[in-house]
Simulated assay, not measured.
Amino acid sequence: MHLNAEGLCIRPFRAGDAEAFAAAVRESVATVGQWLPWCHSAYGAKEARVWIGQCAVRLNMGVSYDVGIFTEDDETLLGGVAINQIDHVHNAGNVGYWVRESMQRRGIGTRAARMIAKYGFDTLRLTRLEIVAAEHNHPSRAVAERLGARFECIARNRLFVRGAPLDAAVYSLIPGDI
């Protein structure tokens, strides 16, 4: 998988991305870390290497597509985007995304989510993608809305973050939406 469009490169993480990944995570604790518990101030290259290895295994198995968002020239790591929680029985998956703090508010999350959703529909042949964001995670919800995802509900206790259940906004995309 290697996607180039909309000024971005989306590709699987490589072992050599570990230091840049860890730095992007540490940079983003104040914004991303608020919603994603793996994003913490002590995140290091060793933890990144483990994550990158897990991503490669799941990608090779075709069960999860957790990949990196890079600048178009593939030089700078901007964040991550994914189709995961794939349910082959119902032909659906979940779209997730994060953008390093210094690059937020530039449309990167929306462009990357659009690219991965198209991949999910066109290549993986999925018929439903969900975006689930904590109810008060307004930046992630704004990405879903800019994509044209349909707001379906606030699902009670849908997410579990830092030992506590959180209500979450559930959005959906189907092939005709993108």
Rank of each mutant, 00 (worst) to 15 (best):
N4W: 10
E6R: 15
G7T: 12
L8M: 02
C9G: 00
I10W: 01
R11D: 06
F13E: 00
F13C: 05
R14Q: 15
G16A: 13
G16P: 06
D17C: 12
A18N: 01
A18K: 01
F21E: 09
A23H: 07
A23E: 11
A24T: 02
A24C: 08
R26L: 05
S28T: 04
A30Q: 14
G33I: 08
G33K: 07
G33S: 03
Q34N: 11
L36A: 13
L36N: 07
P37W: 01
W38T: 09
C39L: 00
H40G: 14
Y43P: 02
Y43I: 04
G44T: 05
G44C: 13
K46F: 07
K46M: 10
A48R: 07
R49L: 15
V50G: 04
A56F: 11
V57S: 14
N60S: 13
N60Y: 01
G62P: 01
G62D: 00
Y65H: 00
E72D: 14
E75F: 02
T76D: 07
I83W: 05
N84Y: 12
Q85V: 15
H90M: 09
A92G: 13
G93L: 11
Y97V: 12
Y97D: 10
R100P: 01
E101W: 05
E101Q: 12
S102R: 09
M103K: 00
M103P: 02
Q104V: 01
R106M: 06
G107A: 08
I108G: 07
I108L: 08
T110D: 04
R111Q: 13
R111L: 11
A112P: 05
R114I: 08
I116N: 11
I116H: 09
D122V: 11
R125F: 06
L126Q: 05
T127I: 10
I131S: 10
I131W: 07
A133G: 02
N137G: 08
N137M: 10
N137Q: 12
N137A: 11
H138G: 12
H138C: 08
P139G: 10
P139S: 10
A142C: 06
E145Q: 14
E145K: 15
L147I: 10
F151E: 12
E152R: 02
C153Y: 09
I154S: 00
I154M: 02
F160Y: 06
F160H: 13
R162I: 00
G163R: 11
G163H: 12
A164I: 04
P165G: 03
L166I: 00
A169P: 07
V170D: 04
Y171Q: 03
I174Q: 13
I174Y: 08
D177A: 03
D177M: 03
I178Q: 11
